[in-house]
Design a protein around this nucleic acid. Structure first.
Lengths: 216, 216
DNA sequence: ACTCGTGTATACTCGCGAGTATAGTTGCAC
DNA sequence: GTGCAACTATACTCGCGAGTATACACGAGT
């Protein structure tokens, strides 16, 4: 087919395309694509990646497998999209503090709150569980890169905190790992009917990490 | 060991020699069974549960699949055994402090050290990743129970600490989750060639969790 | 009206991997 | 040595699920 004509097909959707084409169809497509990804994310979270077939996902969408393949290239890409969607939620946290004025410790707390909210979302599980093992080398590389961005972001904040005096001198790497671990682990135990919501969990985590559990 | 004369040297050395050696006397069902479990644990950690076939494991042991089935009932049980072996390592930490005299906070630190060592072991990945999703309802139930034991153990220690004044009053549940999350997460990033060993990681974690990162 | 692109379904292929039937081998007991 | 039990291999079955070939439906542009 004339498949070669496919230009950039995704996120950097040029403003031109979005506007000029008052094309309801394109928007429709995008909405459907998002529905596929959301449904997949929920299914993966509930039953796991390998225990979820594309037939399952299709059934939950009230369509059949070829339809799903019309929106994503393959199962692996589907997992990647779920991962990526969740990751963006976390990234928003870092962007939010760009213009913030507070100390690094306060900005870190802000990021943690967003982080908790992202992890408790439908995409939380995929974000944490998207194992390199389940992805092709190329995808795996991308995932590692993106995860590393977050890690570096945390470390950077910690170092800034040490510099501005709002954080006690410590091993930034290990501290970032501990923080990320505690946050990511939420995806394993959190249930949406939990008594605590993301913000409350984040608040308690922040208190714990800032003050420690040894009496002052 | 005694038979180390040969030039032959293989990676899971101890595992292979059990079968390769012509020493019939050395055949010990239990030790072979443990070798199967250890090999499986390493394979799962490297490639994931679903990406590891029993043929793979058999090949790494220099035997064939039916032999593996001679020692475990099925793949699921194999995963469970890996999980269980790792879990016991953690449990040892709790048993170790039974007779300890220190404050609850000190005993918690002791548990954390053992915990870190267990997580960085070959069984760490299985322990953390043994998803209920991959197990039959019966096994899944057992796993949840055992994991819950650990959680309860941590919470109990925290409550004791609050009582004896060595730990600042806090939400025991959330604190236990944060601790467990940070520890479990080690399984995701730790590589055996890391610059830090389990004890050093544990020491830094303990410092962080006890004192917090806000300057005192 | 017809055709083209987009979206959807039916009905496949095909390989992989869990689990097994069967048969052979080895060492130990007597 | 003979027979038994434990052990191991060869060579299967069989179902599941990813991915696909093909055909059909429908709206938009001409």
């Amino acid at each position: 087919m004339a498949d070669a004509r496919t230009k950039n097909r995704s996120k950097p959707a040029s403003a031109r395309e979005l506007w000029n084409s008052g094309d309801a169809r394109a928007r429709d497509r995008e909405r459907k694509r998002e529905a596929v990804i959301l449904t997949a994310a929920r299914a993966f979270r509930e039953r796991g990646y390998h225990n979820t077939s594309l037939d399952d996902i299709a059934r939950e969408l009230n369509v059949t497998k070829p339809t799903v393949y019309h929106y994503v290239a393959n199962k692996e890409q589907l997992l990647f999209e779920c991962f990526h969607t969740g990751l963006n939620l976390i990234m928003e946290g870092f962007e939010e503090i760009r213009s913030s004025e507070g100390s690094a410790r306060e900005r870190l707390a802000c990021v943690m709150t967003r982080y908790a909210s992202a992890i408790t979302s439908d995409f939380g599980w995929c974000m944490v569980q998207a194992e390199n093992q389940d992805l092709s080398p190329a995808m795996s590389h991308k995932v590692r890169e993106l995860k590393s961005d977050i890690d570096q972001g945390l470390r950077h904040l910690i170092k800034q905190g040490i510099d501005d005096g709002s954080i006690r001198p410590c091993d930034a790497k290990i501290t970032a790992f501990a923080l990320a671990g505690a946050m990511n682990w939420i995806a394993f135990w959190y249930k949406s009917d939990d008594s605590l919501d993301a913000a409350e969990i984040a608040a308690r985590f922040i208190d714990l990490f800032e003050l420690g559990f040894q009496p002052r």
